[in-house]
Each structure stands twice: as structure tokens, then as C-alpha cells.
Design a protein around this nucleic acid. Structure first.
Lengths: 244, 244
DNA sequence: TCGTAGCATATTGGATCCAATTTGGCGAGA
DNA sequence: TCTCGCCAAATTGGATCCAATATGCTACGA
């Protein structure tokens, strides 16, 4: 719940006041990711300014950054709204993501540390746990599964990308990631135990390939994983466009 | 020379006044690309504002966008300066570029139109012409070679990326491209007829592979081409860091 | 001569002000 | 009742103002 009016953007006491804009960018990005600011909704400068206790000037600069990052669109004299990516854009982004993350995995097979490998295996355990919860079927277990899978998925992919050692690759993937609605992948899996199990298997294969230091195999698995996610998302949205 | 004070940013008469910021972003990006604003130099808001006859507000927003794009760095209370990428960043970016453009070529082999293919072949002709000029050796011919190669190279790569049909891929490559000093590749080739010839051969191989609709071969050639460029650049900068 | 304190200047950062544009509602007329 | 046009409110865009901060120069003292 990062929306409360007292949500400080930066430690105002310290000298980093000028990270104000950067802080706003992060805060807004988080709120968009978490669904606190909905996709397609307008962002009112005055409102944001009041919520963070600043004037519109830094808010506008933050919005400009988000615009450059492709997170929001700014319309003439109308304001900024969270970009609603088209089905096509999502498809294309997933293709790019697959290629890039595949390459990251390939590099990671060479450069990964033991600690990072441990993280991957740990996440695999969590994926399995999430599958078990999902099999229970009741609402609460499903929510638990969602939370577990979410964190594990984020950590898993972030670890691989960090382990590849190429910072430009990491940055590129991050911006690509920020452009997409965050819950896309989970929405596609939709808590289906069967799909979740499949998904866990894919992650396990990737981790095993990296652990075995087989870069090309890791790439193959990641690309397959990405393509599979893309298929599921398309399947889910082919009649139902993302949002009103 | 797009620096003159009368350099309009947008057609002020029309309704697209609010493209002011976007116009500034483009204008500044161009000036940086062309070396009119040097790498590592500070960009004074007031100066830019006066040059384009606007206030500092839109200039600052434009700078924020450029910051988000990684083109400039903004330092607390000091201002914005054109980012000087480290040798490592350049190396890494070239690796990403190779992967991405390789994939673009692979897709282009499927999707390219005849008109685009014609452009590729035409550019190959220009590369050859540039090689001939470079062989002459005198200053004037070299400048001619440079101009020809420059345009042809831009067009060649842009055509492939446009032909791949994946707009997200195109956008990603463009931002990656904008982060690098533009004359890097030419600096690496340095007007050396031998290297230029080699370079022209590489381009020809790529075009041939795409023409033959062999996506994987095209990918291989592009990645080799990119790796080669990377090698030359590293060779050139291994003792001489890019700029003071 | 060298180093340092302190002040003047340049420059940025944020807030505020005003104009321009869009939106939505309300009423007049068909 | 429906449509068109006009006006008021909301919102953005750009300019300007003032405070905060960094830089560079100068003068003073060791």
C-alpha cells in the first residue's frame, strides 16, 4: 500500500533531495506494477503532487521519464496515462524477451556463482510448493500459490539476468519488463495446477541446464519457456482484449 | 549545423505545439549524434532554452527524457552531461546489439519486402563505392568514403530492423543505438581500405542470406559482423579511453 | 610561496503564476 | 426528445520567480 499521503519519496533530511524525481519515478512505477494505478487510467499531476507533498514540476519530469521508458503515454493537453499495450505489442515484447533472456541464460551458464545457483534451486522448491497449494483449489490456497509463484518467478528470472554479467542486457530487459502489465504471466497460468506444474518443470530445466554449465541448452529452455508463456497469454486474450 | 538560433523545433503555427518537448528531445539527440554537442560536455539548460526560444521548463523535461533513455546523465545541482559510456558498457551493448540484430535479420529473412531487399543491395553498392574512395587515400576521398559509408550503414541496418516486423525489437535496438557515440563504428574502421572491404563483404553476406530467405544464416552473419565491429572498437580503445 | 577561508557568480531545483486547451453539462431550438 | 452550440470547470503547458547548491576567484595568513 504505497499510496498513503505520507509516503516519502526520498529521505528528505539527507542531501539527496534531488533524487526527488528519481524517487517519484520509482514510486509511480511500483504503484503501476502493483495495480494501485490501473492500466489505462489517467495520472493527474496535481493529485500525485499533493500525495507526495511536492509541486507539479517534479511530477511532470517524472512523467516524462516514464514516457521515455514507455510506461506511460502523454497526450496533448490531456495528461499521462498508463500505457495499455496491444496484444501485438505484448507478443512482440515476449519474443524479444525470450531472445534476450535466452542469451542471458547462456552467459549465466558461464558466469553464475554458487550462491546464485543456490537461489535458483531454492526458487524451484518454491515453485513446487506453489503447485501444491494450487492443487488444493480453495481460494486461500490459491492466493498463497499466487504470492509464492510471483516472488519465486521474479527472483528466478532476476537472478539469471543478474548472473549473466552483462549490465546492458540487464537494463534492456528491465525496461522491457516495466512496459508490460506485471500480472500478465500469472493471469495466463491462472492458478491452473496443470499449467503451474508445467511451468515449474520449465524452470527446473533451465536451472539444471545452467547448473550443468550448458549455455546453449539453457538458452533453448529459456526460449521455450518464453514461447510457452507467450502462447498462454495469447490464448487468454485472443477474444478478451486486456482491459476496457 | 542544427545549432542556429532560428532552429525551430516544431511548426509553431500548427497545433502541435505540445510536441515541443519531443521536438527538443529529437533535436538534442541529433546534435549529440552529429557531435555538435560533444560527449562528456555539460548541457546548460538556459543556453538550450535561449537557442530554441523557449523557457527552461520544456528543456528540463526533454533532458529528463534523455536521461531515461540513457543518453545524458543528470548530476545533482550540476546539470546534464552527455554520457560517456565506459569501454565495458560499449562492449556489453555491442553484444546485446548483436543478439538483437541477429534475431531481427532472422525474422527479416521471412518478412522482408522486395523493395527493402532492393535497398539492401543498393547499399551494398554504396559500400563498394566507399571502399574505392578509401583506396584513393587523399583527404577528400576519405571524407567522401566516410559520408557514403555512414549513410549506407545506417540505412542498411535500419532497413533490416524495420523489415523484421517486430516493433518492440526495433524500439529496443534504437534506444540501445542512441546510447552509443555514433561515430564509433567508423572510428573503428578508420578509413582503412582493407577493413572497409572486409566490412562490405560482411554486409553483402548478410544481404545474400536474407535474400536467400535463410534466417539462421543471416543471424550468424549479423552476429559475426557485430562481433567483428566490437573487436575493432576494443582494439582501438584498449589503450586510448574514448575521450578526455 | 602555498594553502585555505570566504565571498561573488553561475546554475540548477522546485514552486507558483497565467494562458491555452479540453471536457462535460446545460439550455435553446428543431 | 434529440441535437447543436455555448459556457464553466478542470487540466495541462510554458514562463517566471526565488531558494539552494556548487564553482571559481580573491584575499589573507602561515
Amino acid at each position: 500500500m504505497p499510496k498513503s499521503g505520507s509516503g516519502h519519496v526520498a529521505t528528505s533530511s539527507s542531501r539527496d533531495q534531488e533524487r526527488l524525481v528519481a524517487g517519484l519515478v520509482n514510486a509511480l512505477q511500483d504503484r503501476i506494477s502493483e495495480g494501485d494505478i490501473k492500466i489505462g487510467s489517467w495520472i493527474r499531476q496535481e493529485r500525485i503532487a499533493q500525495e507526495y507533498g511536492v509541486s507539479r514540476t517534479p511530477v511532470r519530469e517524472a512523467l516524462r521519464q516514464l514516457e521515455a521508458l514507455g510506461v506511460v503515454e502523454m497526450v496533448a493537453n490531456r495528461g499521462a496515462r498508463v500505457t495499455l499495450p496491444s496484444v501485438r505489442a505484448i507478443t512482440e515484447a515476449f519474443e524479444v524477451r525470450g531472445v534476450l533472456e535466452g542469451h542471458a541464460a547462456c552467459l549465466a551458464a558461464r558466469n553464475i556463482t554458487q550462491a546464485q545457483l543456490d537461489v535458483l534451486h531454492e526458487m524451484n522448491g518454491i515453485f513446487r510448493e506453489a503447485v501444491r497449494y494450487a492443487r488444493a483449489g480453495d481460494e486461500e490456497s490459491l492466493a498463497k500459490a499466487r504470492t509464492l509463484w510471483y516472488r519465486a518467478n521474479d527472483t528466478f528470472h532476476a537472478t539469471i539476468v543478474a548472473a549473466c554479467g552483462n549490465r546492458q542486457l540487464q537494463l534492456t530487459l528491465e525496461t522491457l519488463h516495466h512496459r508490460m502489465p506485471r500480472n500478465l504471466s500469472w493471469t495466463a497460468l491462472n492458478g491452473d495446477p496443470r499449467l503451474l506444474g508445467e511451468n515449474a518443470d520449465e524452470h527446473a530445466q533451465i536451472a539444471t541446464a545452467i547448473d550443468g554449465r550448458d549455455g546453449e541448452l539453457a538458452r533453448q529452455h529459456v526460449m521455450h519457456h518464453s514461447r510457452r508463456a507467450q502462447e498462454l497469454i495469447l490464448l487468454r486474450f485472443e477474444d478478451v482484449p486486456p482491459e476496457p
